[in-house]
């Protein structure tokens, strides 16, 4: 995204700031909105948000990197999250993650070159009973085994295409 476009977004997109008080309390909320709209938090908007919310870019960066929900880099169209919490781990979560890495040709935390997939690992999603858990674009897959990965990934692209 070009710098100018982002400038435009941050300063003119009323939607993004709508209903928010311009102070530090709104930061997390605002970051969620930007993340939802652009898939990540572009570096260029941070200065602008800082000025409006009367905080410093370093403070924003601290918050930004604290929460997994915010991405520093553009994410792919599809987000694959694989749980490596204790419960999932003992049931093969690590192998599942490795399989996904192999199939997508990227490491956890990265995005494929075609911007289709972003792969992430987390520590526990709070539903240990149904582990190993893989979440694709918000859809939870339970008791996942290695051989299911191919299908799960394929389904994601098909679904995405249907939508378009």
């Amino acid at each position: 995204m070009s710098c100018l476009l982002i400038k435009k977004m941050a300063s003119e997109d009323k939607e993004i700031f709508k209903g928010l008080e311009l102070n530090q309390k709104s930061l997390i909320h605002l970051l969620h909105r930007i993340q939802a709209q652009y898939g990540y938090i572009p570096e260029e908007v941070v200065d602008d948000i800082a000025e409006r919310l009367k905080i410093t870019p370093s403070e924003i960066f601290g918050i930004l990197t604290f929460y997994k929900a915010f991405a520093l880099e553009p994410r792919g169209k599809h987000l694959v999250t694989i749980c490596l919490g204790t419960a999932c781990h003992v049931r093969g979560g690590r192998q599942i993650a490795e399989e996904a890495e192999r199939r997508l040709g990227i490491k956890a935390g990265e995005t494929t070159a075609d911007r289709q997939f972003t792969l992430e690992t987390v520590n526990c999603l709070g539903c240990c009973a149904i582990g190993p858990v893989v979440v694709v674009d918000g859809v939870y897959h339970s008791h996942v085994s290695i051989d299911q990965i191919e299908k799960i990934l394929k389904k994601a692209t098909e679904k995405g295409d249907e939508k378009n």
Partner: peptide
């Protein structure tokens, strides 16, 4: 009141840093 530095990242990755690791010169 300068807030040029923050805790960034979390857990075992936590470090003290600036926005996008920029030099302090650019961080107020």
């Amino acid at each position: 009141g300068a807030s040029a530095i923050s805790f960034v990242f979390r857990g075992s990755q936590t470090v003290i840093g600036t926005a996008y690791n920029k030099p302090l010169l650019d961080c107020g």
